[in-house]
Amino acid sequence: MKKVIAREKLPELWKSLAAKGPLFLPIQEGPVVLFQPWSEGAEANLDAVNTAVSAKDVFLPREETYLQYRCSGNQLELIPVENAEPVIAFGVHPCDLKAVEMLDKVYLDQEPSDELYRQRREKTTVVGLSCREPDPFCFCNEFGINPADAPGADVMAHLKNGLVLLEARTDKGKALLDQAGDLLQDGSDEKFEAAEVKTADFGLNLEGLPENLKERFEDPVWDELYKSCLGCGVCTYVCPTCYCFDVEDFGHEGEGQRFRCWDSCMYGHFTDMAGGHNPRAGRKERVRQRFMHKLQYYPETFNEIACVGCGRCLRSCPVNLDIVQAIKALGGETVEQR
């Protein structure tokens, strides 16, 4: 199914779609663009190449309550909280959608599967959006991602000549376009292809990198690479493929909730044990964990590097300790670059 809508008509589309449930869009929030639920008056920004934080928030929310408890005397009542509702994620770029596939592998494919994630994933209709002009920070090409197409999308959208072209690729996608009804016009005549987009050549050579790294846990390279790390969690929180979480209670002995929320392997407390022992006590161990996870552990289990080249860590790390720097330091560079 192919449909089109004029760009200036989009607010009407947002309104109609949002009436049925949360509609996540890249929204201009002051100086930054964030993937957030749209509401009347919110300023959608489809021109932003990448949101400051990835779209993973839709599938793996930064905070998700799944249990309510009530306590009285000896009694403890545990009540499951259901909060997954049909959601539309509009404007997910190919890199972010590829990252969701990587989360799928962890949360769905690997036993036991995660029901909270599954529900959200299944109830979310994804409208992918092709990239028109890459940012200097983008390097998704290095991972074989085509910025012009997001294969996992339910609807693929392209911005073209003042129009938005929408192509439904799944039943969910069709249902979404149907839902929009008259706001959309038939687009069977339009050419549904985005112009070819190339991201900058960073000169990475990822061939065999995961295998090579298996032997490099104790490599001296780690003694240098970590040094500039401040130990904050920016990289992990903006990263679309990071998925670590924490579980915490909020409330008092009478009643409250239990939620899971994002956590970061860059924090010392992440692995701190009750008795005081910490297997990853230093910044070096933690930096190694993060890069090894992306470049070796994840690939070992799932056969691909856990990076989609979205460039957020390149943009956001306060000290420019990004994955490109790490890959190069670990030998993942083309010969010419070296």
Binding site: L230, G231, G233, V234, S264, Y267, P318
Partner: peptide, 8 residues
């Protein structure tokens, strides 16, 4: 985001 970059 509670990334604590400000603090670090």
């Amino acid at each position: 985001l509670r990334c604590y970059a400000c603090r670090q």
